[in-house]
Amino acid sequence: MEIKEIIGIDVSKLTLDCCHHSSGSHKEFDNNLDTIASMVKWSLQVSGVSKKKLLFVFEHTGLYSDQLIQFLGGGDYLFNVVPGLEIKRSLGIARGKDDKADAKRIALYGYRVKDELKPFQIPSKTLEVLKRLMSVRKKLVTQRAGYIATLKEQARILNKQHNKVLFKVQGKMILTLDKQITIVEQEMNQLIEEDPELLDLYRLITSVKGIGGVTARFLIVYTVGFTTFESWRKFASYCGIAPFPYRSGTSIRGRTKVSHLANKEGKSLLSMCAASAIQSNPEMKAYYDRRIDQGKNKMSTLNIIRNKLLARAFAVVQRRTPYVNTMKFAC
Rank of each mutant, 00 (worst) to 15 (best):
N325S: 10
I292C: 04
K118A: 10
Q143G: 01
V317S: 08
A313R: 07
Q318F: 04
L91A: 07
S259N: 09
R105N: 06
G8L: 08
R306D: 01
E197L: 08
R253I: 05
L16Q: 11
V169R: 11
S23Q: 10
Q170W: 07
R156N: 10
V46Y: 09
L166C: 02
Q45K: 15
Y77P: 08
H26T: 14
F58D: 04
L219W: 07
V46F: 09
C18V: 09
A101F: 12
Q186F: 03
V81Y: 01
K51I: 00
L91R: 05
V81F: 02
V81R: 15
G48I: 11
M134Q: 13
L54T: 02
L177R: 03
K296G: 08
V129F: 03
L130A: 04
R112G: 02
V40K: 14
K328I: 12
S47F: 09
G74A: 11
A236N: 06
T223R: 11
D34R: 15
V165M: 12
D178R: 03
E193P: 00
F167T: 04
R306S: 04
H260N: 14
I3Y: 11
I122C: 01
L269Q: 06
G213V: 03
V82M: 06
I69L: 09
K118C: 04
V316M: 08
T206I: 14
G254V: 03
R233I: 10
F229E: 05
I278K: 14
S268G: 00
A274H: 08
A286V: 01
S90V: 03
N80I: 05
P322C: 05
R253P: 00
D76T: 03
Q143R: 08
F244K: 14
T35K: 13
V316G: 07
S248N: 14
E86M: 05
I174T: 02
K27F: 11
K131N: 10
M327K: 09
G48A: 11
N31R: 14
D293E: 13
E187F: 08
H26I: 15
D293F: 00
K118M: 08
F244W: 08
T126Y: 06
I205F: 07
T223P: 07
R156T: 01
M39N: 07
Y202K: 09
S300Y: 00
R320P: 01
Y64N: 10
I9W: 10
L63D: 14
P245F: 07
K118S: 11
R137V: 02
E2I: 12
Q180D: 14
N325I: 04
K285A: 02
L269N: 06
E230D: 10
G62V: 13
Y202M: 06
R255D: 02
P282H: 04
A275Q: 15
I148A: 04
T182Q: 11
S135W: 08
D76Y: 09
C18S: 13
L127A: 05
Q121W: 00
T326S: 12
L63Y: 14
L201H: 01
T35M: 11
R105V: 01
K209L: 11
K257L: 00
T215G: 02
V208G: 07
D195H: 05
H60Y: 12
A94L: 12
P83D: 11
I211A: 05
A330C: 12
